[in-house]
Every structure is written in C-alpha cells, then in structure tokens.
Amino acid sequence: MKDFTAQVDVRKYPPKDKHPVIFETLNGLKPGENMELINDHDPKPLYYQLMAEYKDQFQWEYLEEGPEIWRVAITRK
C-alpha cells in the first residue's frame, strides 16, 4: 500500500467540478509526491490529457482496474 500526499475521489464531485479538482491537486504536488485518483470508470482520457499538457511530468500507475472502481497513483516527476 502506498502513502499518498493527496487523494481525490472524483465520484464525490459533480461532473463540472471533477477536472478542476483533479488539476488543482496535481498542480499542488511537488516532485516525488503522489496522489491517488479514485473513479467509477477508467480515467484513460485524463491520462491522455496529462500526457499532452504535462509531458514527462507525471507517472501514471493503475492500482485497481474496475469493474466498479478504478484507482490510479499519479506521481509528480
């Protein structure tokens, strides 16, 4: 089990708030810090967005891959 600097369970937020909360949390991470993202579906589109906007700044690791819960560790490089 990893220790996380932050955790964002996006299932708790209305759709319009999900990405702002995720990116606010990501932007607050220092190098080496990580967050746990919890979602009710595969957040693969977020992965592609991170790769486009934050190229080589984050590491993405699936911790759980459904079918009901997806958990991802996102670490700032």
Rank of each mutant, 00 (worst) to 15 (best):
W60L: 03
T5G: 00
P45I: 05
P43E: 04
P31E: 13
I38A: 01
M35N: 03
Y48G: 07
I38R: 10
G32W: 12
Q49E: 15
Y54N: 15
P20I: 06
T5N: 10
Q49T: 13
H41A: 15
E68H: 11
T75S: 06
D3K: 15
E61K: 11
I74M: 01
W60K: 04
T25I: 08
D56F: 07
E36D: 05
V8T: 02
P31V: 14
R76I: 10
P43G: 04
P15L: 13
A73G: 08
E33G: 12
I38M: 08
L46K: 05
F58R: 04
L26D: 01
K16H: 06
H19I: 14
E68I: 06
F23H: 13
F4Q: 05
D3V: 12
E65Q: 15
V8N: 01
V10Q: 06
L46W: 09
R71Y: 00
E33C: 07
K12R: 15
L37K: 00
Q49N: 09
R71T: 02
V8Q: 00
I22C: 05
T5D: 08
I74N: 01
Q59I: 10
Q59W: 03
T75E: 14
M51H: 03
Q57Y: 06
V10Y: 02
P15N: 07
R11P: 04
L46D: 03
G32Q: 09
L50C: 08
M51D: 07
K30P: 03
L29V: 07
F58K: 02
E53I: 00
K55Q: 12
M35R: 02
P15V: 09
R11Y: 06
M51F: 07
Q7R: 15
D42S: 08
G32R: 05
P45G: 07
G32F: 08
Y13Q: 11
D40M: 05
H19S: 11
T75W: 12
L46S: 06
